[in-house]
Design a binder for these strands. Structure first.
Length: 296
DNA sequence: AGGTTGTAGGGAAAAGCCCGGG
DNA sequence: TCCCGGGCTTTTCCCTACAACC
């Protein structure tokens, strides 16, 4: 099974994350051997060259990750898994070590690929990875004084850091009394509670449709505005949401991750597989019917 | 013509994480 | 410092429509 791109994407520092780029904007060019970053001309021109100046390292990283990362007890059919929990570790075949977070694994992988440490120009600190260094720079440039010792990310106050550190430790202090799901932040629990109450406080002013989360409303509003911020860099076709772009990109790559367990035929979309499986059900019914007829 | 498939539009639900303000 | 609300982002699953093909 291929590692999902989120493993790599999570590794991209915030200097990228504020941008309206689907992660495939970054990953796909890498797969095609393109440069994300060129001095003054890169498609993310104007951002820190830190990330994109190391496209070769990223390519190598993804290649290695693709070759070595496997999830324990993976299903061969399901293409993408939910986010990973501490109980759901990643395994690096090369060393047979478990990593509770994908980013830890990617960081670890870099220890095999990069030899030169990255030195902060503002302090004596040296870091094993340039994205760490990028995070670390915020301490000097943005007055962020609290730094995560695990990933290098910097925060303006230590309570933010403590909360962030829970993403590493797996600590989730806010638990739902109804279903037992736990969350790092109280606001996340409140958001979750709306799924139990059915409350939908966000209403579209154009059609009145209501949503439980503001982001779902925003997604919906694009159906009114026609906004399509996600563009395929191969054919130029644009989509209103990132997942639609990623689905579309499979038409270029030929990737068909959904396989029929009855006939082995593969499909690019889950719903296409399900529809196809219905044709087998029709066959089963016809077979049963003909057997019944034979008996009579 | 009808069945099957490829593709895309859009909805729904949910979760992870960060930021800024009180 | 902590809590809270808001915002951004992503993911998965689903249904459906339409066109093309066999």
């Amino acid at each position: 099974m291929l590692v999902e791109h989120s493993a790599l994407w999570r590794h991209v520092p915030d200097t990228l994350q504020g941008y309206q780029h689907c992660k495939s904007d970054v990953i796909f060019p890498l797969e095609q051997g393109e440069e994300l970053w060129r001095e003054g001309t890169g498609f993310l021109q104007g951002q820190s060259p830190v990330i994109l100046g190391r496209e070769s390292a990223l390519k190598e990283q993804e290649l290695i990750a693709t070759q070595h990362i496997s999830r324990k007890d993976t299903s061969t059919v399901m293409p993408v898994q939910k986010s990973h929990t501490p109980e759901d570790p990643f395994e690096y075949n090369g060393l047979e070590e478990d990593f509770t977070h994908t980013f830890m694994l990617t960081q670890h992988l870099l220890t095999h690929t990069e030899k030169t440490p990255y030195i902060s120009q503002q302090c004596p600190k040296s870091l094993s990875d340039q994205s760490y260094l990028n995070q670390h720079k915020q301490i000097h440039t943005r007055g962020k004084s609290c730094e995560c010792h695990l990933c290098g990310k910097a925060f303006s106050n230590c309570s933010s850091l403590r909360r962030h550190e829970m993403t590493h430790t797996g600590e989730k202090p806010y638990e739902c009394h109804i279903c037992g799901n736990a969350f790092i932040q109280s606001s996340d629990l409140r958001k979750h509670n709306l799924t139990h109450t059915g409350e939908k406080p966000y209403e579209c002013h154009l059609c009145g449709k209501a949503f439980s989360q503001s982001s779902n409303l925003r997604q919906h509003e694009r159906t009114h505005t026609g906004e399509q911020p996600y563009e395929c860099h191969l054919c130029g076709k644009a989509f209103s949401k990132c997942s639609a772009l990623r689905r579309h990109e499979r038409t270029h790559t030929g990737e068909k991750p959904y396989e029929c367990h009855l006939c082995g035929k593969s499909f690019s979309q889950c719903s296409a597989l399900r529809r196809h499986e219905g044709t087998h059900n029709g066959e089963k019914i016809m077979n049963a019917f003909s057997k019944y007829s034979d008996l009579r």
